[in-house]
Design a protein around this nucleic acid. Structure first.
Length: 260
DNA sequence: ATGTCGTAACGTTTACGA
């Protein structure tokens, strides 16, 4: 089963590019972030026509996550637990039924956190604390669990073309990186790094300053796999090329192949 | 030129978030 994550930066703006990528890459599941749409405004028919079940968790204007799946989805939940006052739509979970077994999928859009320091950075770190709590609970189920999405975290210097330019940014500050490492230390495997080593692999290129043409990118979209899911992974990759097409998102898809 | 894009709104332009 091919499972992808893709920050589309607005469903209205990606109304052509997203279906074109789906038709070509043919993922069984796509975790989407930044749909920037309320649930009722999401053009679900476009995806249902292609055989996808559609589950959304949106809000007006910003954020918003969704799951598209060709296989049945069950037990869908919306919102990251741990703060009932948090109204930002950044988390959705569902169980997808594979041919042999079920997988628990979590689609996440982790707060950017800039400017840092400041209240937005505090919110990012608090959100990561809640993510840690939820991730630990999911591990305890001993089921295959995948946490996929836009983490807004550059894990190491090798994950940026110009690491010094990001040193003070919320995406690379020591507290952000430490919170990400704490997740890994629970026992998750970072899918891409389990398969590919070394610098030069990115999932985001800013629209500004010709970042794409200079390959001035960062790697901030990730899949974290529970031990039971990591045992089933057979491949992982980045669909880099679509960043150079018409009307691209600033992110590109990351995908994993899971033998489920 | 302080570099772009997407969304919303008291819209033909500005503000915000990224």
């Amino acid at each position: 089963m091919k499972i992808a994550t893709f920050n589309i930066n607005g469903i209205k703006a990606r109304i052509d590019a997203l279906p074109a990528w789906l038709d070509e890459a043919a993922p069984d599941v796509a975790l989407l972030q930044e749909i920037k749409s309320v649930d009722g405004g999401f053009p679900r028919e476009i995806f249902e026509e292609r055989g996808y079940n559609v589950e959304t968790h949106g809000q007006k204007g910003f954020n918003g996550v969704a799951i598209l799946s060709k296989r049945p989805l069950e037990d869908v939940t919306r919102g990251l637990p741990g703060d009932d006052s948090d109204e930002q739509a950044r988390w959705i979970e569902a169980t997808v039924m594979g041919e042999h077994r079920a997988l628990r999928l979590c689609g996440l859009y982790l707060p950017n956190g800039n400017p840092a320091p400041g209240p937005k950075y505090d919110y990012k770190l608090a959100w990561m604390e809640r993510l840690h709590t939820r991730a630990r609970a999911l591990l305890a189920t001993e089921e295959p669990v995948l946490l996929g999405g836009d983490y807004n975290i550059i894990p190491q210097d090798e994950d940026a073309a110009r690491p010094d330019a990001w040193r003070a940014d919320a995406l690379a500050r020591p507290e952000s990186r430490a919170a990400f490492r704490r997740l890994l230390n629970l026992g998750f495997t970072e899918a891409f790094r389990a398969r590919v080593q070394g610098p030069g692999h990115y999932t985001f290129w800013d629209y500004q300053a010709g970042a794409w043409n200079k390959n001035d990118g960062i790697r901030i979209d990730h899949f974290l796999l529970s031990p039971q899911a990591a045992d089933l992974m057979t491949d992982c990759g980045i669909d880099k090329d679509i960043r150079g097409r018409d009307k691209p998102s600033d992110h590109v898809p990351l995908w994993v192949e899971i033998d489920a």
